[in-house]
Design a protein around this nucleic acid. Structure first.
Lengths: 259, 259
DNA sequence: ACCCGTGTTTCCGCATAACGGAAGGAGCGA
DNA sequence: TCGCTCCTTCCGTTATGCGGAAACACGGGT
């Protein structure tokens, strides 16, 4: 195993990471500095990445992530396979409710947003497609955590439970109770900055395990009962389309991957 | 510049390409053979890619494109920047028409599908997100071709004008006339297998050049006049949101000259 | 139980491909 | 004009990637 820090590939991948973290593009020297790669070496690697199409030059001259990479990623099974199945259902839900709809999966100990629809009114959230957040802080993350393997749950419960500044602190004890309640009821609710409410429910994959979660963002003033019914109808539809056996509300936890 | 065929990076990127072309995942030996990389070398490179998250193991044991790569690509400006702006407009169009809606850009001499919405009835097309097609064969491609730089147009006109088997042959002369007509009218119409009609119109970017195109898939029996109005209202909306100066209906050709 | 085929992993000596300092260009603003 | 930053080319050194060979793991057929 070549040293991850020195190998060409390691450096190239670090460069890609660096560039993708910088909206608006980076100049070669910036890449060199931020990725910790000597300028000459960066020059060579970036040259190759550019020749292949992994990087492109923006009109302003900097480098940015190229289309070729996006094309590769368009076939990523875990995100796009799921997305393809879920999209029509999300559309329906969006049409009937006109509220923000989010689809996310759990990746390691974080929640990863795969797709979202937002209306202008409910666009108050920053959850970009491709963004990661802590599992315990959002409704959609809580759902994923509630059905995650126990080692992930314990890791999260043991770690520091950081919360946004507008959010009351969370203790491990409270979180355990919350997760149990989610497993019992089959959904999670949280408030966002006191202005919105996020309601989330699990999506089951073919193995009967939770493969993803779907959430709906509502104004805090709106009762969420009726919307919850819509949401759960949608998650049931997606689960069925994914080939889930769709048993009881509390399904066995476990790990599932598309492929 | 190191030889593209032998360098680690070249090989790694070729491996990524290989894997992404194979739905369902590839075993290490398959990767080695298809990418033309000696097994031992493939083993090492795949190992590094896997460690980083560019590749993942599917439940069946094969390698597939990993989530990490998808996350990188989620910030690709040319596709996702456009997508982010266009998505709400596409939603509206889909809601009002309930017909297939496609967003594509031109990449080199091909059309690249960036986003699509389809209803069950109109799902008769195979245009996947991330897929490439020839410019001259689809309505959306014709629009992009009509507003492409002249060297791209000439290259396409000069090359073999392959068409699907159900499609009548196209001559260079006809194609020139078609492109002129598209520039004049501001939209393109084609039939798909005699069952559907595709209507497409250009989207203008901030520089006033055509940045993308949008198409609507209708049953062949349905008159397209009213739908065309919806489509063009949508492309105007997206163009404006992109910061286009948005002149008259038949907009200037942009940075490039024709004629 | 045995063998054989296929896929995966480890080992190691060799030479090539990557490395990066230094120096020369190319713009740009003062 | 200078001075600054960013980009590119050159070239001697060596670490790094290379890949044949061989061991290992699994599974299916007889």
């Amino acid at each position: 195993m070549p040293d991850q820090r020195r190998s060409v590939l390691g450096r190239a991948l670090r460069i890609l990471d660096t560039v993708s973290d910088a909206p608006g593009g980076l100049t070669l020297s910036q890449i060199s500095r931020r990725a910790g790669v000597p300028l000459t070496t960066a020059h060579r690697i970036v040259g190759e990445l550019h020749a292949w199409g992994a990087l492109e030059r923006s009109p302003s001259g900097g480098y940015q992530i190229g289309l070729r990479l996006w094309e590769l990623a368009a076939v990523t099974p875990r995100s796009m396979g799921l997305r393809q199945v879920a999209l029509p259902f999300m559309q329906d839900l969006f049409e009937t409710t006109h509220r923000g709809v989010h689809l996310a999966i759990r990746e390691k100990d974080q929640v990863l947003f795969v797709e979202r629809f937002t209306s202008q009114e409910t666009a108050a959230d920053r959850a970009q497609v491709g963004a990661r957040y802590e599992l315990h802080a959002t409704a959609i993350g809580l759902v994923l955590l509630a059905y995650a393997p126990s080692d992930v749950q314990e890791a999260t419960l043991a770690g520091p439970l950081a919360v946004p500044d507008w959010h009351p602190p969370v203790t491990e004890r409270e979180l355990r109770a919350t997760l149990a309640e989610i497993r019992r009821s089959g959904y999670a609710v949280t408030s966002i900055r006191g202005e919105f409410r996020s309601v989330a429910a699990p999506v089951y994959g073919p193995a009967g395990a939770v493969a993803a979660a779907l959430s709906l963002i509502l104004p805090i003033t709106e009762p969420y009962g009726p919307r919850l019914a819509h949401l759960q109808a949608t998650t049931r539809g997606i689960s069925r389309a994914l080939g889930s056996p769709l048993g009881r509300a509390t399904a066995p936890a476990g790990r599932f991957r598309f492929g």
